[in-house]
């Protein structure tokens, strides 16, 4: 356990050399490797941060696009709803108009049907009344009624205005004869009565021609040229029928 100065000195030299060697060949390369690793880590960290930033930016862009799409969707939904609402309103208006038109058309048809039915009913009632009247008059027809009608004719012709008498007289002068149509053969007395009445009213001698027409029911029809004087039930019924038809 003796101290050897040479060993001490050489050990000091050895150690100093060892420090230099390790620093030169071990520590500096290790430090450089650590620096490289640190640099790689920082680079990787920067890359990761950059990627994270890019991802965040991308996410924001996508979110912005999604928001835009969402707003566009809402806007288009609103437009579509408005358009649908307008179309529905238009369709409803059209349907209402068509329903109204159809209603009017049906009302018109109904009114026409009602009018036709009413007219038909009236015509039927009219025909019934006329037939009933005709049946009744057929049963009442006879010589007495012929005489009554003849008397009524005498009264009426006596009350004719002068202008009408002149027309009859003129027609008689051209024709020279009067056609008397009766429902049945006139008795001589009635024929004579008629001749007297006409001569008295018209102031001329006249020739009577007689004709039987059972359709007249009762009374006579006097034909003087183009003029016809009615004093029978058949013509009265026709007048009555025409009046009814005109009234309807």
């Amino acid at each position: 356990m003796e101290l050897d100065p040479l060993t001490i000195v050489l050990e000091i030299v050895n150690f100093l050399v060892l420090i230099w060697l390790l620093k030169r060949f071990l520590f500096k390369p290790v430090q450089a490797a650590i620096a490289r690793r640190q640099q790689d880590l920082e680079q990787a960290q920067q890359d990761a941060q950059q990627k994270a930033k890019d991802a965040t930016d991308r996410q924001q862009q996508l979110q912005s696009k999604i928001d835009d799409w969402e707003q566009e969707k809402i806007r288009q939904q609103q437009q579509l709803q408005e358009q649908l609402s307008r179309q529905r309103e238009q369709a409803m208006d059209k349907v209402r108009q068509e329903a109204e038109d159809e209603k009017k058309r049906l009302q018109t048809i109904l009114q026409q049907d009602q009018a036709a039915l009413m007219e038909k009913t009236q015509q039927q009632a009219q025909q019934g009344a006329i037939q009933l009247t005709q049946q009744l008059l057929n049963r009442l027809a006879g010589t007495d009624l012929d005489q009554a009608l003849l008397n009524m004719f005498a009264d009426d012709i006596n009350q004719l205005p002068d202008t009408e008498r002149d027309k009859l007289a003129t027609a008689l002068r051209k024709q020279k004869s009067v056609l008397i149509t009766s429902a049945r053969p006139l008795p001589d007395a009635q024929t004579q009565q008629l001749q007297n009445i006409l001569q008295s009213v018209l102031g001329q001698n006249i020739t009577l021609e007689t004709k039987v027409d059972e359709q007249l029911i009762s009374g006579v029809r006097l034909t003087i040229g183009p003029m016809v004087l009615h004093a029978n039930l058949a013509d009265e019924l026709e007048f009555f029928k025409a009046e009814l038809h005109h009234a309807i």
């Binding site: 050897d4 040479l6 050990e11 390790l22 060949f25 390369p29 290790v30």
Partner: peptide, 24 residues
């Protein structure tokens, strides 16, 4: 007189130097 300790130290230094080159 070079002591055994110094010789051992030199051998050790050579080994460390070789190991440093290997690690490098």
């Amino acid at each position: 007189f070079i002591s055994g300790s110094l010789l051992t130290t030199w051998v050790l230094m050579l080994g460390m130097l070789a190991f440093s080159a290997f690690i490098r």
